[in-house]
Amino acid sequence: MAFRAAVVTFPGSNCDRDMAVALEAVSGQPALRVWHGDADLPDWLDLVALPGGFSYGDYLRSGAMAATSPIMRAVAAAATRGVPVLGVCNGFQVLTEARLLPGALMRNAGQRFICRTAELQVANTDSLFTSGFVAGETLRVPVAHHDGNYFADDVTLDRLEGEGRVAFRYTEACNGSARDIAGVLSANGRVLGMMPHPERAIEPAAVNALGGADGRRVFENILASLATA
């Protein structure tokens, strides 16, 4: 199966190349690079990825200006058609600002930038991003953010919990996120926003001194799910 993914670059994105490299490493297919000012996306895409970084310098709110970029209308339309969308770190912030996911990402509880490896627990195994995991298993994935504190009101949080839309949780307090939420799914399970960076954990320690291949499994799950769809 030919896997066709697109990576969107906003002014201030700094993980777009990392995302493209990860997608090609796992799928064997180069990712299409898309500029935020583009108005359209090809209708043959299998995945749209919004990478980490500091789009528009995080002015106003993280992701707020990027959410109004021309390409986001095409991303929203693709999501409506059921095209999978993955937003990582700043990409997660953009998805909430664009109302493709509920909630908001606020300043970390400690008011400091956090850059370390975090342990995540898999909370959902029913989406195409998580179907290869076992419920409750743990992953080690890097985090690097200043505004990663996930917030939603209690009614929204209860709905997310009840509908199985929490994809990942931090196993210990990380940034103040409500109910330790690290990743959230859309109602149809086709859009995932997560603060940790799976694209930075695609190679084992024997290959990369940074070590860790747990993030690779997120991308492998996407490919496996689409191949059997």
Rank of each mutant, 00 (worst) to 15 (best):
I202Y: 01
G162I: 00
G103D: 05
P30T: 14
M106Y: 10
P198Y: 03
C115A: 13
C174T: 15
A31R: 13
D154W: 01
P142L: 10
G136F: 08
P51E: 12
L23R: 08
L185M: 12
C15V: 06
A25D: 10
A205D: 00
F113A: 06
A2C: 04
G12P: 07
Q111D: 14
D16V: 13
A74G: 05
F92A: 12
C89K: 10
E24K: 12
A5T: 06
I181A: 06
V155S: 12
E220S: 08
G176K: 01
C15G: 08
S13T: 15
A123K: 11
F3H: 08
F168C: 10
P102K: 10
A6C: 00
A104D: 12
S55E: 12
P198D: 10
D154Q: 12
G212E: 01
D126V: 04
A31M: 08
E137K: 11
P102E: 05
Q111E: 14
R169T: 14
A152K: 02
Q93W: 08
R99I: 01
C15P: 04
G37N: 14
M72T: 08
F168H: 03
A31L: 08
E24F: 11
G183M: 06
R112W: 02
Y56H: 13
V8P: 07
A66I: 02
V7R: 11
M194A: 06
I202L: 03
S69H: 13
T96I: 03
L23A: 05
E97D: 05
A64L: 03
A22S: 14
R107P: 01
V141C: 01
T117G: 05
G28S: 09
L60R: 11
Q121M: 15
F92Y: 11
G28E: 10
Y150W: 13
P196R: 07
G110P: 00
L120Y: 08
D214W: 04
G91D: 09
T130N: 07
R99C: 13
H36Q: 11
A152R: 04
R107V: 03
A5R: 05
V143C: 02
R116H: 10
A67N: 11
G132W: 07
A49P: 05
G148M: 07
Y56N: 09
L210V: 15
A213I: 02
A31T: 09
A109G: 09
A187N: 06
L226D: 03
G87A: 07
R17M: 09
L101W: 09
L157W: 13
R200I: 09
A109R: 10
F168W: 13
L60S: 04
A135Q: 14
A209T: 07
A104R: 13
S127R: 01
A167Q: 04
A31I: 05
T130K: 07
E24P: 05
P11C: 01
L32G: 07
P102I: 09
D40L: 14
L32S: 04
P11E: 00
R99M: 10
A66E: 08
A39Q: 15
V134P: 00
D38Q: 15
T171Q: 04
E137M: 14
N221Y: 08
R217H: 15
L223N: 07
T117R: 11
D46V: 04
A229K: 12
G193E: 03
G82D: 02
